[in-house]
Design a protein around this nucleic acid. Structure first.
Lengths: 341, 341
DNA sequence: GTCTGTGTCCAAAGCGCTTTGGCTATTGTG
DNA sequence: CACAATAGCCAAAGCGCTTTGGACACAGAC
């Protein structure tokens, strides 16, 4: 069922039918009602490609999601992030097109997306500290919003980020207040901007108390469970083991907890753990007393917000770079306690 | 840069340029080379919408991924599944368009996708036992492949599935051989076909040894960590607690492990655990001695295969319903041992 | 009675591509 | 040498929609 058939069936011109359905005023309310009824009855839906060609808009958003070259892995937080964004798109009548891509060919993918004109805007995920994508997209003139920031990028761009340095500084302060002095950082890959900021917050808190960050207590890798496990296991075997861990993801924190148990220790008493908690649907940390003390910031609602920002940017391209900072909550759970003597 | 501009720049007609780029024989090899060089130099890429309109093909595949109404959660295995499929699409020059959708409006989404003509084919995820989507899609005549099966659907359709009943039967037999008699099943939602098959395999193994499945030892919910935790915690408090758990997902198995530890018990000695392992990138269970004894089947390669099947179906619509069964491996890890006396 | 407005509708162009159906040289064949 | 075949190119139609620029009828105003 296409427009021509529908209009023939109604004894109207395609023009009138199109205007009736798209809410233009040049059509009487009685015929509009007639057209709408027929469209519904015949299950008519305008062809997306044709409409896109005619209007220049595609009603679609691209998400380019990088896959770790080391682990061939898509970060599990993307599921929740995508869910939040996808829901927003669905409400607004937009499609979401996904490109899974290893970092190597990134810029080609962005150029392609632009040249082929498949979408009206792009969400950029997991920015690095110096991220060439931002300059590239600014140059292409395609609306985009970055989830996170790229510290070394000076040109203006739209972003939404959580205050990673502040939350990790607070978490570190919390551990310091409990008397911990040997605190380990199990971080994400530090070419990622968020991971770098977290380290900065961590180090700043230590330095403010006259403590020197100890490289033997800092790791930065893809945030898998085994990564958390191995890092904690190895550190707990050191001559001067840490009494607390600050972890960048619940998933790695689970590995840390396993290492603590395997070492015959008790999490929350012998060893404290604070993790960042993206509030993933599959890993809710929100029981009466949460398992983990955590800096919590829902990545799902980040997805929603970032999508809303992009849609706004598309509707009104002049509305300038939009920026938004989310603060993480510090949630006290069962995984922290005073430093053992 | 569009075709007209490019052809003007080359002093050729759009026709010739199009044919040159698309490999038609009616153009001399020298001009073809000239055209290709210019296209590359000017970074020309045919507009996807226009090409789609002209050819009737969109070079895009839809994935409709359901979100749990209970937990507002996207199953974390989708990340890996999507990664596998996405990689295959990328290689074949296809886009992937994602719809996140709660089960209620499912059929409307499929109808929309078809009517708006945004894609050449659809992947159906997480089929229920009686799943109306299959009849619907068969009716619409849009190529599709189901990841999983719908037991009660009799019409032919293309699917790829893992042998869930067999693998859970084997896992149960393995526990029975170790002397376990009170085995708990921590399953996924049993309106999902795969969960139902797993239960069948589990029960068949018990019955074959003259044991009756005990409803107090069987749960079926969204496979979160806390679900695994709570189920195991409650069961271990029962008068006759289970000595072994069979779990449908590594994520819930992590919760089960936590409950075992919290109860002061030792996993692998006091209580055994076998989990299904989708081989998720973030939860690799493949160390020297895997943490969990598991039925392993990579959901990432399932994504790859299912995408390949759909592309084949699109290339050659006559190639009939394609079906493929993957067998899960039974991996022996540290989480199982003989039943305590 | 003419003129201007206004409310309703429509014909046709155009979005950027592919594809059908020529057209013109050039080559091969008897 | 005439004719057919072929190689190489192009004009134009068409995919399904939106949108520009009227057309027409009827109303009210002078």
């Amino acid at each position: 069922m296409n427009l021509k058939e529908l209009s023939r069936h109604l004894n109207l011109s395609p023009t009138t039918v199109s205007r009736a359905l798209n809410g233009y005023p040049e059509v009487s309310e009685t015929t509009r009602a007639r057209v709408q009824a027929a469209a519904r009855a015949m299950n008519y839906r305008p062809n997306a490609r044709a409409r896109g060609l005619a209007t220049g808009r595609t009603q679609a958003i691209a998400h380019v999601i990088p896959v770790s070259r080391r682990h061939q892995m898509v970060n599990p937080i993307f599921g929740d992030f995508i869910a939040g964004a996808g829901e927003t798109y669905a409400r607004a009548g937009y499609d979401m097109v996904l490109s899974i891509v290893d970092d190597v060919r990134q810029d080609r993918v962005y150029r392609d997306i632009h040249a082929r004109g498949t979408v009206d805007g792009i969400i950029v995920s997991a920015p690095a500290m110096r991220d060439p994508r931002i300059a590239l997209l600014n140059g292409l003139g395609l609306p985009f919003v970055v989830h996170g920031r790229a510290t070394e990028e000076t040109a203006p761009y739209s972003w939404l980020d959580t205050n990673n340095s502040r939350s990790f500084r607070r978490a570190t302060d919390f551990l310091l207040d409990l008397g911990h002095r040997r605190i380990a950082l199990i971080n994400g890959l530090e070419d990622m901007d968020f991971a770098w900021r977290r380290r900065r917050g961590f180090e700043a808190a230590l330095i403010a108390r006259g403590l020197a960050p100890d490289p033997r207590l800092m790791r930065a890798e893809d945030m898998t469970e085994v990564y958390g496990f191995r890092s904690a296991r190895d550190m707990l075997r050191q001559a001067e083991p840490p009494t607390a861990f600050l972890v960048s993801s619940v998933i790695s924190a689970i590995g840390v907890r396993r290492a603590i148990h395997d070492a015959g220790l008790d999490m929350g008493r012998d060893v404290s753990v604070i993790t960042h908690d993206d509030d993933l649907g599959a890993f809710k940390n929100d029981q009466d007393v949460p398992i983990f003390t955590a800096t919590r910031s829902s990545v799902r609602s980040a997805g929603e917000r970032v999508a809303e920002m992009l849609l706004q940017l598309i509707r009104d391209p002049g509305c300038g770079p939009l920026t938004e900072m989310m603060e993480a909550e510090l949630i006290i759970g069962a995984s922290t306690g005073p430093a053992p003597q």
